[in-house]
């Protein structure tokens, strides 16, 4: 087990005890949101960081999850417990559709196409108001329950643990993927496309696969998010959420699994704390942007790199500049 994985394990153990310390619903709510952001950011990092795909449509997968769960539970009357995993399927399918053009494009064109797909989804949601509720969205979705027990009780205790379990599953999944030959091939394709091709790796297939894999837990996170908040609105595709999550990826460190998870937790609370300061509601985004630029300038490997510098071990780190988790 690597040191980063041990760190992660320790983090999850601590998080498992958080509800015993913070018994009010508000702090727990912040953690739940942070866990959701952590899932989105770390999965986005799989395509953006590990494979170097400038995918600006990652929030599409999240939004697909949101609307899949909302429509299934509200309109079709499907049990939320079934609707949430169904989001993995719909998000993965949307990833295949988005990947088809992206697989063979390069650089700025990937940005344009993926961004366009995201905008297309907004238009689709707005135009299909009968199904999606249009700009108003879908509200009052059914509660998540087990038997007679509603998850809204006990100050969101049930939601907290479900979110934590989803984050743990997603993280385990990402560590498994990153450690596999496929995970290594992502970095090969990112850094030396021709060399990788000359060694039997299909660049197109790798890109499609990584987009699909990164969509799975992102879709599930979307499904959980909408079931938790009991609303679905087109804002989830918006630029604001996207730039916040992107800063989590970049500040966390694009080459690791752990980095974006930690950055998501830190930024969610930092952003919330700043919102509490009068007149700072909008300025906080500037602060986050400045933090992002500083981290990128001072430690391009992200927070995870700074952490590694602070806690040197006897063993030399695998990479001097960037380190895989």
């Amino acid at each position: 087990m690597t040191r980063n994985n041990l760190l992660l394990l320790a983090l999850f153990v601590v998080l498992a005890f958080v509800p015993q310390i913070f018994t009010d619903g508000y702090v727990r709510h912040l953690f739940i949101i942070a866990f959701i952001y952590a899932i989105i950011a770390s999965n986005w990092n799989l395509s953006l960081g590990h494979c170097g795909i400038f995918n600006f449509g990652h929030m599409t997968f999240f939004g697909i999850g949101v609307y899949t769960a909302a429509i299934l539970t509200k309109t079709a009357g499907v049990n939320p417990w079934l609707a949430i995993p169904a989001c993995a399927v719909t998000a993965a399918i949307s990833a295949v559709i988005m990947a088809a053009p992206v697989a063979r494009l390069k650089g700025i064109y990937v940005v344009l196409v993926t961004f366009a797909v995201n905008q297309l989804m907004v238009q689709l949601v707005l135009s299909q108001a009968d199904l999606t509720g249009g700009a108003k969205g879908l509200v009052r979705l059914p509660f998540l329950t087990i038997g007679d027990y509603s998850f809204i009780r006990d100050y969101k205790l049930g939601y907290y643990y479900l979110a934590l379990i989803l984050l743990a599953l997603s993280t385990a999944f990402l560590i498994l993927v990153a450690g596999s030959p496929f995970g290594k091939s992502l970095k090969a394709v990112r850094d030396a496309e021709d060399y990788a091709t000359a060694r039997g790796i299909s660049v197109a297939r790798t890109r499609i696969s990584v987009l699909v894999l990164s969509a799975i837990f992102t879709g599930i996170a979307g499904g959980f998010y909408t079931v938790y908040l009991r609303v679905a609105s087109p804002e989830v595709f918006g630029f604001g959420t996207m730039s916040l999550v992107l800063s989590m990826v970049l500040i966390g460190g694009i080459n690791s699994v752990l980095g974006p998870v930690i950055a998501a937790l830190a930024l969610t609370f930092a952003s919330e704390a700043m919102a509490g300061i009068g007149g700072f509601e909008d300025a906080r985004y500037i602060v986050i942007a400045v933090a992002m630029i500083l981290v990128l300038r001072l430690a391009p490997g992200g927070l995870i790199q700074i952490l590694e510098r602070l806690a040197p071990t006897g063993q030399k780190p695998a990479t001097p500049t960037r380190s895989p988790a």
């Binding site: 970095k187 850094d191 030396a192 060399y195 080459n255 990479t319 960037r322």
Partner: peptide
Amino acid sequence: DAEFPDLT
């Protein structure tokens, strides 16, 4: 020179 810089 061609290498996968991050890979051992």
